[in-house]
Simulated scan of single mutants.
Amino acid sequence: MASVELTKDNFDEIVSGDKTVLIDFWAAWCGPCRMFAPIFEKAAENNPDIVFGKVDTQAQQELAAAFQISSIPTLMAIRDNVVLYAQPGALPAPALDELIGKIRAVDMEDVRRQLAAQSAAK
């Protein structure tokens, strides 16, 4: 499955589902972004159970600002409406595959318990 373009109009709908969403924040003028793009697309083809989305930070400045994106490319992983990973920098294919494996392995029940405990402590 190819990646999908995420915009302020479709972002919430795509991310709020129960699927894992991997997001590439990028811009056309960014050299590392262009180098990472084929790696991201190949991962999208190899992992059809994950939604791979791309946010053009030039066209979608509101989204970039909402997530405080200050460096691109930035890769973000969201699962069950929880951001599990958000780091700037292009990853080589083996590192992206490893990250995908780690995201799949996350125990979301444990994450929800930790979030609930943090909320209760405030």
Rank of each mutant, 00 (worst) to 15 (best):
E45H: 07
R34G: 02
W26Q: 08
L22I: 15
R34S: 06
V82L: 13
D24C: 11
P32M: 00
D97G: 11
D56Y: 06
V21H: 05
L22V: 15
A59C: 00
F40G: 02
A93D: 01
E62D: 14
T57E: 01
A65W: 06
P32C: 05
F25K: 10
A95P: 04
P32S: 03
G101N: 14
A77P: 03
I39S: 09
K54H: 04
A93C: 03
F40R: 11
A95N: 13
S71E: 01
D49R: 00
P32K: 05
D56G: 04
E41S: 08
A66L: 07
Q68E: 15
L96F: 10
K54C: 10
G31D: 07
I72A: 14
T74W: 04
R79I: 09
N46I: 00
E98D: 15
K102V: 03
A65C: 03
R34Q: 14
I72T: 06
Y85F: 15
Q68S: 15
D97N: 15
I78H: 04
G101W: 06
L75P: 02
G53T: 09
D18H: 02
I78Q: 06
V83I: 15
R79W: 11
I103A: 11
I23M: 01
C33R: 05
Q58G: 13
R79S: 12
A77H: 05
R79P: 04
A86L: 15
P92Q: 13
L96A: 09
S71L: 08
T74S: 14
V21P: 06
Q61G: 03
V51A: 00
E41V: 08
P92G: 11
A93N: 06
D80H: 12
Y85Q: 08
A44T: 02
K42I: 00
Q61F: 02
G101T: 13
D97Y: 01
K19V: 01
P48E: 09
L91C: 12
W29V: 07
V83T: 15
A65M: 11
I78Y: 06
Q68P: 02
Q87T: 08
T74A: 08
D97E: 15
E62H: 06
A90K: 05
I69Y: 06
V21W: 10
F25Y: 11
A77W: 09
G31W: 02
A44D: 00
A86G: 08
P32I: 01
P73K: 01
A37D: 05
G101A: 13
K102L: 02
A65Y: 02
G31E: 11
E41I: 05
L75M: 13
L91S: 08
N47K: 03
M35R: 11
A64D: 09
R34N: 04
L96M: 12
A44K: 03
C33P: 06
A59Q: 11
V21C: 12
A43L: 02
L96E: 11
L84R: 12
V21L: 12
R79G: 00
A28T: 13
D97H: 10
S70Y: 14
K54Q: 10
L75H: 09
L84T: 09
L96D: 10
P94N: 12
C33L: 02
L96C: 10
G53L: 00
D97K: 14
P38V: 08
G53P: 07
M76D: 01
